[in-house]
């Protein structure tokens, strides 16, 4: 496909996003393996060992195996992507990620023709992740994408932010970023990527399928059963006037709407 080479700043739409300061990005996290409070990950994630790190790539690929992170990065074309992150909890912030396209890694592993989905899994180490003591979700955290979503040039695996190594609370050493989907689709600290034909198990739709669907595309017209998704609180905007209107596909409709042509987005939420 060769998408990696053309996935440059041209895809960093919408334009003119002002990134949040690094303090916002690193002190306001949902990473339930380290606790359900927004500052719990910043307090607890330091214990996670991220070196050495291996990602198992398996399933319908030509070259399955344990890929060392250094090796993945050495072969990747790292670029900056400034994306707005829209959380399903109706808040957003802007993050300058460093990373490479998921497509480039999948191509390296050799996705077999006809494979339909990609499944992801987060590391689960009870001794380093105090949140795993509580059954908030069915651990380990798992996520998934349809193959065309996974191969889309906007979809990246992030290894850093603000030009520095990814902090642990943001999903070090390797996390998914899919800017047109709610933040929880961006699975953190990935240890396994499986190419498969069945729709992957996803932790949040398992926990509450009525509230969190497999697609979870940002959509101001499809409300969460418990709150509206029409607007979002802008993190870092202070006490007053901190709400903005949520955009269809988080502002990336021109790039991704065609992936869902003909689908009822109320049904496939």
């Amino acid at each position: 496909l060769g998408l990696g080479s053309i996935a440059g700043p041209a895809f960093a739409a919408p334009e003119g996003l002002e990134p949040n300061p690094i303090e916002d990005i690193t002190n306001y996290n949902n990473y339930y393996e380290f606790g359900t409070g927004k500052t719990d990950p910043a307090e607890n994630a330091g214990a996670l060992t991220t070196q050495p790190w291996t990602v198992k790539i398996d399933g319908k690929v030509d070259k399955p195996g344990d890929y060392q992170l250094e090796d993945i990065i050495a072969n990747a074309q790292i670029e900056e992507r400034i994306y707005r992150l829209r959380c399903v909890e109706a808040w957003s912030m802007v993050i300058p990620w460093n990373g490479f396209t998921l497509a480039s890694l999948l191509e390296r592993a050799g996705v077999q023709s006809g494979a339909k989905y990609v499944a992801f899994e987060t590391v689960a180490r009870p001794e380093e992740m105090p949140g795993l003591r509580y059954p908030v979700l069915n651990w380990p955290y798992r996520e998934g994408l349809r193959m065309d979503e996974a191969m889309h040039p906007l979809t990246i695996l992030a290894t850093g932010l603000y030009g520095k190594d990814l902090p642990n609370q943001n999903g070090a050493p390797l996390r998914l970023v899919v800017p047109w989907k709610y933040g929880f689709k961006g699975i953190k600290s990935i240890v396994r990527i499986t190419v498969q034909d069945e729709e992957p198990f996803t932790s949040w739709s398992d926990a509450n399928g009525r509230e969190y669907g497999f697609y979870s595309n940002v959509n101001p017209e499809v409300n969460h059963p418990r709150w509206s998704q029409a607007t979002e609180r802008v993190i870092g905007a202070g006490l007053f006037g901190s709400r903005r209107e949520t955009e269809m596909f988080n502002g990336y409709a021109d790039e991704v709407a065609s992936l869902y042509a003909g689908m009822d987005l109320k049904k496939f939420y």
Binding site: E23, N27, K38, M93, R233, L239, S242
Partner: peptide, 8 residues
């Protein structure tokens, strides 16, 4: 002093 999302 209430972090980055003071309203919440």
């Amino acid at each position: 002093q209430l972090g980055v999302d003071p309203v919440k």
